Simulated scan of single mutants.
Amino acid sequence: MATLGGAARLLIRFTREDLARTRISGRPDALWDLVLSLHRLQRRRPSGTRGPLAPAEVLRWRTNTLACLSGRALGRRVRDHLLPLAPISSYFPDFLTPHTGLHGLEPGLETVLSTPRAQIGRELDELTTRSGAPTWGSDLATGDPHALHLLGGTLRDYFATALAPSWPAIQARTTTEHTRLTGILATHGVGAMLANLLPTTIWHPGDRVLETPYPMNFTIELQGRGLTLIPSWFCSGMPVALVDPALPPVLVYPLNHDPPPATDHHALAKLVGPTRAAVLLAITIATPTRVIHRRTGISASQLSRHAAVLRDNDLITEARHAGQTFYTRTPLGNALIGGR
């Protein structure tokens, strides 16, 4: 199979079962984005130096966050207790990013703080080998209640200060990416979806291997467990994966920070009518009728009538479950409103 040449690379080996079990997260992962945001805070180079320049909106976030943390007790706690656990290197502990982070910050924190002490000790030993020992790591490994309380509180307070103000925009960007990938999956199949994660991603269909640049040579054997794809607003350059092969496999990859194409809502209204344009714009993925009512202000009978026209013209799809109706915009509907 053709490869990326001499550069270090990540290889993910799929079976047929893994392809069927590949999942795309429709929401951001609170703890993955939290940890990767700590990496963004530590990148001091402004521009013109080696490596890709951070997107403008990430640079603005970094400037604002550093200003919010400067001179505050939280800033010192982040510096002394979080940054040493998540250095910019080829490794940080897996226990900081459990799979429950996809369900929100609090479920993720609950899992972090209930991590077996043996696992914490093992991963902190690996961190010490690669980047040096964090000053308070031994207290975490022994399950010291004060250390665990300090970790949980600092993670929670940092999220509230640094990530929560941007979280609605991050969620919206993740939804857009989910729409993009599900559209490729529905139209061209899972191989095309994997090949289009990033411009540098290579999908080898004959070998069922996904290849991407990586800080070091690393191979993941999925062995029927499937793969969860997690778009991240803070991920920089290369994708990230868990080190421990026993954990549920994930691939965290950077969202596209290019501004979306401008949408002329008036032009869309002229084409399909103002009410249908409003309905089409209100629908994303599995949008329930109550949300469309709230966004558009139209009645149930109006929605039913206009949704039928949009559905019959392949602009949306309709599904029913447990007495509720859900609508999803099709790739053609996305193209019509100017989305990717």
Rank of each mutant, 00 (worst) to 15 (best):
G206Q: 10
G51D: 12
F326G: 10
I337E: 09
V279D: 08
G71A: 04
T111G: 06
T15D: 09
H39F: 05
T289Y: 04
L59W: 10
H257A: 12
L185N: 06
L227R: 02
L336C: 15
I337F: 05
R117E: 10
H146Q: 15
L163A: 05
D80K: 13
P213Y: 03
P55F: 10
F326L: 15
G137S: 11
H204P: 01
T142W: 11
L69Q: 08
T22E: 12
P213T: 06
H146T: 14
P52T: 09
Q42F: 06
H149S: 15
S236V: 06
I220D: 01
Y327P: 03
N196C: 12
L34A: 10
V112P: 01
A164I: 03
W136I: 08
W203K: 03
A30Y: 01
T275M: 03
P205N: 00
E17A: 15
A7H: 05
N256R: 11
N256I: 01
T111W: 10
E318M: 05
S166E: 07
A141C: 02
G237C: 13
K270D: 15
G339F: 07
C235G: 04
L148G: 02
L10I: 09
T200G: 09
H99S: 13
T289W: 07
V272D: 06
P215W: 05
I298C: 07
A335Y: 06
A160K: 03
Y91E: 14
T219H: 02
R180N: 02
R208Y: 03
T100E: 15
L38H: 02
L315G: 01
L336P: 14
H265R: 12
C235W: 05
T142P: 12
T179P: 06
T63H: 12
A8D: 14
T142H: 13
M216G: 00
L251Y: 04
T175K: 08
S236K: 07
P260G: 12
R130K: 06
A133H: 01
T212M: 15
A118T: 11
T317L: 09
E211T: 09
F159E: 01
A73D: 14
A7F: 04
I202S: 14
I230T: 05
T263Y: 12
A241P: 04
W61I: 05
R305K: 02
Y91P: 11
T212G: 11
F218K: 08
A147G: 07
A277Y: 09
L150H: 00
T317M: 00
I230G: 08
V112M: 02
D244I: 09
G189H: 02
P245H: 04
Q302P: 06
A241M: 09
G108Y: 03
F234R: 00
T287P: 14
L113Y: 06
G333E: 05
L281G: 06
I202K: 08
G48K: 08
A172I: 08
